[in-house]
Write a protein that binds this DNA or RNA. Sequence first.
DNA 1: ACCTGAACACCGTTCAAGT
DNA 2: ACCTGAACACCGTTCAAGT
Lengths: 229, 229
Amino acid sequence: MTFMTSRRTDALSRERIVEATIQILDTAGESGLTLRAVTAHLATGRGAIYHHVTNKDELLAAAADGVIGQVVAAAAGGDDPRGSIRALALGIFEAIDARPWVGVQLSREPFQPAVLQIWKAVGVSLSALGVGGTALADAGSALVNYVLGAAGQHAAGARRAPDGAARKEFLDGVAAEWARQDSDPLVQESAALLREHDDRAQFLAGVDIFLAGIFSSEAIAAVRRDASD
Amino acid sequence: MTFMTSRRTDALSRERIVEATIQILDTAGESGLTLRAVTAHLATGRGAIYHHVTNKDELLAAAADGVIGQVVAAAAGGDDPRGSIRALALGIFEAIDARPWVGVQLSREPFQPAVLQIWKAVGVSLSALGVGGTALADAGSALVNYVLGAAGQHAAGARRAPDGAARKEFLDGVAAEWARQDSDPLVQESAALLREHDDRAQFLAGVDIFLAGIFSSEAIAAVRRDASD
DNA sequence: ACCTGAACACCGTTCAAGT
DNA sequence: ACCTGAACACCGTTCAAGT
């Protein structure tokens, strides 16, 4: 039997590197994540990182996977699949609201681990609701793409205007710009609505539209099946 | 009266710069777009670009706006608003399929000109279908976010696997990886479906789910209004 | 006013050399 | 095996100097 010996008690590991990455992203944002910042944070050399991780993209994907893993775990279980879907969507929304970099990362790469976790959780809930086969793939893709799209858009907004006051000012500015550029009454009304809209409520309304759509599609498909019998 | 004199017949202009940008993006992809490539293409100095455009982000946004402008124009008009929405969505899908960089750019920034064009076109069609007020904002946001999410995800796939053969190989690889990692029957079935799924058909199925959801939501809201009378 | 191109202040990644 | 840090090959952006 041999003793485990290490030159430093806090030996470098993929886990510690990802932890440091999340910390840097949270405090300095996406533009603050540089390999130099990571090595400084861990008091190591540049090349050491590449011993545990293939490149910066993998670092970002691993960081997002860590955050989303917690969200998915928190929303899992329960015997109400619709509730699970809403809880998952809301959890993702709030994670992105707190950490805009997650939203940007999610909408960047389709087959990264964090996105696969979302796919699977959505698939499980839809399956529990009785949706299967191609309909499951279509419904899952619709929901996941909606959530990721909203994620990316909201992340960009949250990054630009971190607190409530900055957000209000920013939206007022955009609304004024719209109203100025286009006299179309529809645009004028949209500008007014934009000023006072609630991102979270609008996001959840979208989830409900989607859920309603799936079951009305399912119903139509069932009717079609009956008709062709 | 003075004559307009210019040292070169093809004087630099914002328009010519954006044109060159689109050409570079189409041939060299997003990673190929560098200020150095643009200046080389236009046979000018680096700083000249900054005389017509504030930075690289604006260049990308202007390029995407040019492409989306044509798509929106082509899908506009007609007396079938649902058809217009489907045509717009399909047009965006095909533009992104041909130019993955557009999809990446669309999902990056919420209030850029190209996205505002999409918002307005969707708003006009939904409005023609009788949706208004907050319901219009919710429905529009759902649809736009779905389209942008799918745009980003499809763009990443299209960039990774440009032609049909590469795409098939790539999807087979991902499906095999899923099947290996997770023995859950749901994942096994999803892997099988992934291998043979049609991105375009799946995207359009998603549009129909949202349309169905919008009108079933509208119906429910109408019932609620009646009930509260 | 418009353009030039060198200079500046960064990047991610690699790799010989160390322990 | 793991780590170091200098070196490499790039970036976007600025700015004094030209016409």
